[in-house]
């Protein structure tokens, strides 16, 4: 059996000497699966995200990417992962092409390969004709598409996105959500998508509900609903959160 694209086991994390931001978190994302990390603001999504991308490191628990331990072999693990951060990370004064080639260089792609893949990835997003425009001239939705194209340049097996639709209008949001679902289906990429918006989750997705640093439920949307005794994911989510508050 092949290792899951992402596996997190017994991960805990506290900022300084404060309370735990994450406590005993375990989850797995299989190839070709769209897994939504669902939680209210402050649930620990961004902390988990920062640990998975190794912006910081926890001493308790393990994170494996395609079976490679992130702490033991970070470069090999990070090479398999594409990342879209919540905050925009494009250079506004550079063109789309320059942004993509910079990223490709960081991943060691030869220039010709990088050029070809950049064009291909932008075509898929319907952004190919904007390749020589500076990012500053693009709207928020288009910038996100460029970031998504960039995250795929090195053909990662795992794509992690931290609330990637924040600040986008409804059509732009829908376009990004659909596009990432397509990537899962058509290319078998494993996706971990952090969000607090339930309407971004499709009925056949998997969902991991996180609240106050702990996993409250995990599995296919149908199973989570059944276990929570609810009809819809919205109801399940509200019950899971309310149970904690009570």
């Amino acid at each position: 059996m092949t290792a899951p694209a992402l596996s997190v086991e017994s991960l805990s994390y506290a900022y300084g000497r404060g309370a735990f931001a994450l406590q005993d978190v375990s989850l797995a994302v299989e190839a070709g699966s769209f897994t939504a990390l669902l939680g209210p603001n402050g649930a620990g999504k961004t902390t988990l995200f920062a640990l998975i991308t190794r912006l910081f490191e926890s001493t308790s628990g393990t994170i494996r990417i395609g079976g490679v331990d992130l702490r033991a072999d970070p470069t090999r693990a990070l090479a398999r992962m594409g990342v879209v951060f919540q905050q925009p990370t494009l250079d506004l004064d550079l063109t789309v092409r320059q942004n993509l080639l910079y990223f490709a260089a960081l991943h060691g792609l030869p220039r010709r390969t990088a050029q070809a893949r950049a064009l291909e990835a932008l075509e898929r997003m319907g952004m190919a004709e904007r390749i020589d425009e500076t990012v500053r001239r693009l709207n928020g939705g288009h910038r996100r598409r460029v970031e998504l194209a960039r995250a795929l340049l090195h053909e990662p097996a795992l794509l992690v996105l931290d609330e990637p639709t924040v600040g986008l209008d409804v059509p732009a949001r829908r376009a990004i959500v659909e596009h990432v679902h397509d990537l899962c289906r058509e290319r078998g990429i494993a996706v971990l998508w952090a969000t607090h918006l339930i309407d971004e989750i499709a009925p056949d997705d998997r969902v991991v509900v996180i609240h106050r640093g702990r996993i409250r439920a995990a599995g296919p949307v149908g199973d989570v609903n059944r276990d929570a005794g609810a009809e819809t994911l919205t109801d399940s989510f509200n019950r899971l959160i309310a149970k904690e508050a009570a």
Binding site: R54, A79, V83, F85, P88, T89, F103, L106, H107
Partner: peptide
């Protein structure tokens, strides 16, 4: 800071 994050998650 965003672009620093981008830099730090590269496989090097």
């Amino acid at each position: 800071m965003g672009s620093m994050r981008m830099l730090l998650v590269s496989p090097l």
